[in-house]
Design a protein around this nucleic acid. Sequence first.
DNA 1: TTGTACGCGTTATCAC
DNA 2: GTGATAACGCGTACAA
Lengths: 326, 326
Amino acid sequence: MSDSGKSWVKAEDVARLAGVSRSAVSRTFTPGASVSAKTRAKVMQAAEQLGYQVNIIARSMNTGSSNFIGIVTAGFDNPFRSKLLSPLVHQLALHGFMPLLMNADDPEQLAPSLKQLLSYHVAGVIITSGAPPLSLAEEYLARKIPVTLINRHADLPGCDRVASDNQQGMQMLVEYCRQRGWQQVGFIGEHPHHFSTRERYAALCSAGPDLTIQPCFIAGGGYHAGRAASPQLMHCQVLLCATDMLALGALDGLRSAGNASALPAVTGFDDIPQASWDPYHLTTIQQDTDALAQHAVDLLVTRIADFALPSRHRAVPVKLIVRDSA
Amino acid sequence: MSDSGKSWVKAEDVARLAGVSRSAVSRTFTPGASVSAKTRAKVMQAAEQLGYQVNIIARSMNTGSSNFIGIVTAGFDNPFRSKLLSPLVHQLALHGFMPLLMNADDPEQLAPSLKQLLSYHVAGVIITSGAPPLSLAEEYLARKIPVTLINRHADLPGCDRVASDNQQGMQMLVEYCRQRGWQQVGFIGEHPHHFSTRERYAALCSAGPDLTIQPCFIAGGGYHAGRAASPQLMHCQVLLCATDMLALGALDGLRSAGNASALPAVTGFDDIPQASWDPYHLTTIQQDTDALAQHAVDLLVTRIADFALPSRHRAVPVKLIVRDSA
DNA sequence: TTGTACGCGTTATCAC
DNA sequence: GTGATAACGCGTACAA
């Protein structure tokens, strides 16, 4: 890609300056190597002086492994996913991995992009997007590249996943509804093939068999979807929304359509920053993004060490955040 | 990092199956090479059959260049920055570059992280964060690694930058204020050393010398900062905020502190998705994130081709979005 | 512990 | 147009 650039400091340069062999330099920068303290000191000083950095590209090539991790995600406009990105990158860095970012927004371009990821010999892949076809994950698994899914379902052997405990979250909400004496509940979700929607709806149904549940599935899953959906459920006592974005839209939809005195209560799921803003004060279920990220990376790291591990699933506990919206 | 894995399909395998030499395979996958149509066909078919992908790591090592681009950013919780990430990744992909994501949230860990980026022999770096010290950019430039800044100031020779036209945006707002007959204007910004705050404030001052401007700088720059700041400017006719996040908080701060009948108008800057939500309907200046990303990548690509280029700066036009908040 | 020699997968160079 | 061969920078057996 680039041309000129040139003149990187290499191990040989350091070796010459330090008066040692090139392998001594290599060993100094290899975690589990045996170098005398004296040699190491000489090398380190020379390296410092020259500003030497190990060329990870070259290292990767001869070890046959890389420390690249593909992060494939979609919809950075979704605050929850953005929120997840930070701890994910942080955790990966802690383990010495470098994230390669793949945007899955454009389904057309997704397949070739994921293929391309193979060119980089990624050590693993984290999929955090709701939509992309799972068949692509199989492609990685077939090549023994570990795949970890976040808030996503999969039956693929050798594929790990971590998700917030939707069951627990919905149970908390149902319990809360019972305390308030609400029986007529509406549910707003994205298309049922969407993982979080499907799982949360199922959890709601199983947790509240005594409730009258009216579901409403609406395409898009964002603020505007929620806003358009809620007026249809005006008669409910409470609206349980699959995500905060839907819930915030739902609140605004209700306000614009009904008279303020008798609006349904509204709850969300995620606890994005906007949920706590004045106009909303959304009662919601908080996902622990730090824990999600930590588990995701841990699952990935352990499977990189041993690909033959059985599929694992971890459910991350959630927390009920009671605010004014319900 | 990983161990077992192994068994990648390499050029030699393809060559053997296709009955040609390794070089033929290499040429087939090298854009500007000369291969006969017949050979190319044989190679392509064999490659397809084996699922061969060029090993970019090895290619990078040989050519001495990489197609990695470091994206260093901070605060994914800022919707504007998240919004910028999508087109950025997209544009890079269009040029065959792979983004390495660096989180600059933790200033302690930033320096070592950026150093580490050198290990990957990145072809260039895009800095989109407001805060990180510019001295780090110098480190890259010293090694002839192109650096492009987005919405950030810099005097470094050889460093390109692209930014929304803050001057134009503020002029539009001032003009709008004049039409409305507002003379008492408040300004809410982050700390003055923050680029967008400083530049937008300066633009405001120079565009509206006839106005009475009362600035208020408040740490943090998010929703809560704006919310805390606005009540102090209750007496103004309009509050010009340096960012949408500040503006949304400011609106809520005003509402909670004053009587609804006589609140100042409020404007923002960015046009994040939340600005159009019902409770806000924020009048704001829209940044063209697609254009910002496109220019940033273009600047980077051209400088990668020729590092000796003079420093360039591009201002991206903005657009006034009039809603109800002003 | 240290240095030498070789291989990782690819592209560039050079004969053919 | 095609095929051998030499790099690219580094890790690591192997011998010293």
